[in-house]
């Protein structure tokens, strides 16, 4: 391991400040590679902090004695799909849950570092956790509609936060959210049937619609297709491409093909470290770190 690291460090040092064309096909986009600590970065342009949707700096997560996330710094740009990729247990879900403070209720969890939404630290004492989750929505791994009607599922958030005035506006929000999640045509005649009667893929789109209804700025998705069949997965993936027009999406996936299909950039995690981050093509086709190389060639995971 030590040997590999040294060798790799050498590689990176050599490549630093060089300009690469990962596909070798005359791709107009070129990447500069740099390395700080464990992380190799493929930088395609300079992004000022003020233009970033979110950024994290040196985030550490401890569950008791378990050091689950070891200093992760990553940027999330507006209207991009950022895929957090890596083998099981690499910390990608943990990191995702930090982005909207869903780790708060976990006993023994300690989160250090900065996680900022539009330049403001969401872990700040004055930052209300309800505001965090209102601005940063989330879709869970397994579809988890409430045991209520489809309508009530969508109306839950707007009602909770008083986002709508009167029933008509609420009806409108419900319809709009379902339309944007591509579910309206399928469920418009059964809005008052239990959401739990839908198929798995429909349930997941219901959960996405439920998240959209709050009009968040960022939507976090934790392996949203892991329990779905290929057809439903395809539908959700198309939906994600559609969603990035209005939202910023951070998606956790262990499926490299999925990351390639839906994401603009990839952050590859390994055992709590952010190993490599950059545009999807760059990371997958031109991985610099040995660990990323092994993963993309199918040796890990």
């Amino acid at each position: 391991m030590t040997d590999t690291t040294t060798e790799m460090d050498g590689n990176v040092a050599e490549l630093r400040n060089t300009v690469r064309d990962p596909k070798g096909q005359g791709d107009p986009k070129s990447y500069r590679i740099s390395k700080d600590g464990e992380t190799t970065r493929h930088e395609d342009a300079a992004w000022a902090d003020k233009d970033l949707k979110m950024y994290t700096r040196d985030v550490h997560v401890h569950y008791g004695d378990n050091h689950a996330i070891k200093g992760v710094s990553v940027d999330v740009r507006p209207n991009e799909v950022l895929a957090l990729m890596g083998p099981s247990g690499c910390g990608k879900s943990t990191f995702l849950r930090c982005l909207n403070r869903m780790n708060d209720p976990v006993p023994n969890a300690r989160i250090d570092g900065t996680i900022a939404l539009e330049g403001e630290n969401i872990y700040d004492k004055d930052y209300d956790v309800v505001m965090v989750r209102l601005r940063i929505g989330m879709v869970a791994q397994a579809p988890n509609p409430f045991p209520k009607s489809i309508y009530e599922n969508i109306a839950f958030g707007p009602r909770l936060h008083g986002l709508t005035d009167g029933k008509e506006e609420l009806d409108e929000v419900v319809e709009n959210s379902l339309r944007r999640a591509g579910l309206w045509e399928e469920v418009k005649d059964q809005l008052h049937q239990p959401g739990t009667n839908l198929s798995g893929g429909q349930q997941q789109r219901l959960c996405i619609a439920r998240a959209i209804a709050n009009e968040p700025e960022v939507i976090l998705m934790d392996e949203p297709c892991s329990s779905l069949d290929p057809v439903s997965t395809n539908t959700i993936e198309e939906l994600i491409m559609e969603l990035k027009k209005s939202f910023t999406v951070v998606i956790v996936t262990h499926d490299m093909q999925q990351a390639e299909r839906v994401s603009d950039r990839v952050a590859y995690f390994h055992l709590g470290d952010l190993v490599e981050v950059g545009p999807t093509n760059a990371v997958i086709r031109d991985a610099q770190d040995q660990r990323t190389k092994e993963y993309v060639s199918g040796h890990i995971g």
Partner: peptide, 23 residues
């Protein structure tokens, strides 16, 4: 009660109290 109900409510910005009372 599946923990996912509680999580679902929290994800939508419910406070802990609301998550319990409403779901």
């Amino acid at each position: 009660v599946p923990p996912s109900y509680r999580d679902g409510a929290l994800m939508l910005g419910a406070s802990r109290n609301q998550a319990v009372m409403k779901t």
